[in-house]
Design a protein around this nucleic acid. Sequence first.
RNA 1: GGAUUCGUAGCUCAGUUGGAUAGAGCAACCCCCUUCUAAGGGGUAGGUCGUAGGUUCGACUCCUACCGAAUCCGCCA
Length: 592
Amino acid sequence: MSQFLSYDPAKLSLAETLQNILKEMGASFEVNDLFKSIEQPPESNLGDYALPCFRFAKSLKKNPNVLAEEIKQLIEKANNPWLAKVELKGAFLNIFTDRQKITAHIIPSILSNEQFSILKKQSGNDQTKVMIEFSQPNTHKEFHVGHGRNVCLGDSLCRLFSYNGYQVIAANYIGDEGAHIAKCLWGVENFTGEQLTEEVNNKAEWLGQRYVEANNLLKDATPENKVIYQKEISTILKSIESKSGKYFETWQTTRQYCLTDFNSIYKWLDVNFDHFFYESEVSEASQEIVEEYIKKGLFVESQGAIGFDMSDKKLGFFLARKTDGTTLYITKDLALAKVKFNDFDIDRSIYVVGSEQNFHFKQLFFALEKMGFKQADKCYHLSYGMVVRPDGKMSSRTGNSFTFLQLIHIVMAEIATYLEKYKNEWSMERLEETAHLLAVGSIKYGMLQADPSKEIVFDPKEWVSFEGNSGPYLMYSYARTQSIITKAAELNLKASLDHLELLTHDTEKELMRSLYDFNQTVLYAAENYRPSTLATHLFYMCKSYNRFYTEVSVLKAETPEHILARLALLEAFSKTLKQGLNLLGITPPEKM
RNA sequence: GGAUUCGUAGCUCAGUUGGAUAGAGCAACCCCCUUCUAAGGGGUAGGUCGUAGGUUCGACUCCUACCGAAUCCGCCA
């Protein structure tokens, strides 16, 4: 188990030394536990690690300040090769690592790529199969920026889990059935404008508009008309669900239009799925589940409908079948979960779904538990906040939303202006390629740098401002490394590990520390389902790099040895940044 | 009415699971391109961490109450 901590060998070694010291004193602590209680001082000049001694003082019944002094002396006596100096400040011990040893460890480890497989090899996660379900768009509706956030989050999560050694199945669950589609097709039937043909661009958007109109028509209808309309819609829904009749055919073609549109967005975003589930696939199974659990007595009749009374758990009533005999979204989720557990043999199931469905998942997971699924407690709902407009919420029902394609166009326009400086130098193809990479990186970073649980206020003006903490800033930092590396190659200069002891500048030490902490951050990001912590770390890493860039010169360094050592650091940074961006789903261009 | 989440600089947000003097980015003001890409770097200014209690060596972080916001609470997904 303590092997798993070897992504930070210095801290692990310190924890082991500490364990021996405390044992001598008569207190027994696990290495793991001690490892966790070693912190980072508030400022880097205070040291590399900090150890508050209060808890040890408590269990040894000693004065914390006195104990800290005792521990300090024993650490010094232990002669741990990773450690250089210990300073005492109240009950805090500030510990300085041996710079040379850290440098000699981290740079070669990164350059050989070993650093990037430590977690995969040593985490012991390789026997755990995780299914991450995300995106879940509804057909016959536009794909708006909120859906975009979901895709970016889910994709990054897949990459993070994979990096940490898990077997990952990226799953999509398409909502291709249900009342909203019946409404949409009803809207299509009542629509007199330009019809949907092969030539229409963004067919999902066209259908989404019909859906909005249908909703408005229903809302404004007289009570008598409303009854008629509802009946018509219900007829359409039944035709779709029974997979027969004229509406079934319309459903098939329009559904396919939407799937094609979605796939082109996934392709643009460089997001891949291992498996697609469809709501229409599980509707029959969901009916069977209702039957099965009526027999088992879990589901009961109530007000003409069927469901599961959870009011004693403050979860209200789980509605499984409507009075008209059709099932609901949540019923299909029961059937889908069963397929996931039984057919895919997964150990963990993660659902990336918006926070407005928190209650839905509480009901769902509780139902699964009571239905006897052992994996129910291995289900996790990664809830994320909505993307809202500065003037309020977005809703595809009212049409008050920003589509993802609109976002792409806004960002692309801004990037085109920036890339004009290469207009005469680059081919059209290269310009387009670079613009694409920059747009994807800008959007993904924007979606991921915020804590998932919080709302994102989507202000188009903010999103095209590419300064400071933004995707382009990180990609620009990467491009700056490539520029130097290319020039070095032209001069026949090769990074060398022979002079690493020359890396003593403040900015070099700061950058090194940031590289050293990379794996710790990635581990944390996956365990907490928070790509945002990785995004923040990468930002600080680039901040260090850009300071390094302005304060010291690589190619015009003091001595030839300095050039070679700095090239090694530069390459290590470049590789780490590229790996980190990859975990966010971002591929930086080599030049921008 | 109940449940969940949230409230940190003018704005947008970090804050390593309870640690030391609360940090960034925008916006404002002032510096730095004959020097590896200025989408960069440095600096100034900006704070009663929603409010009031509690828990302890120590609270932005945990507990309670209140104020405010968002979402959800049976025939939508």
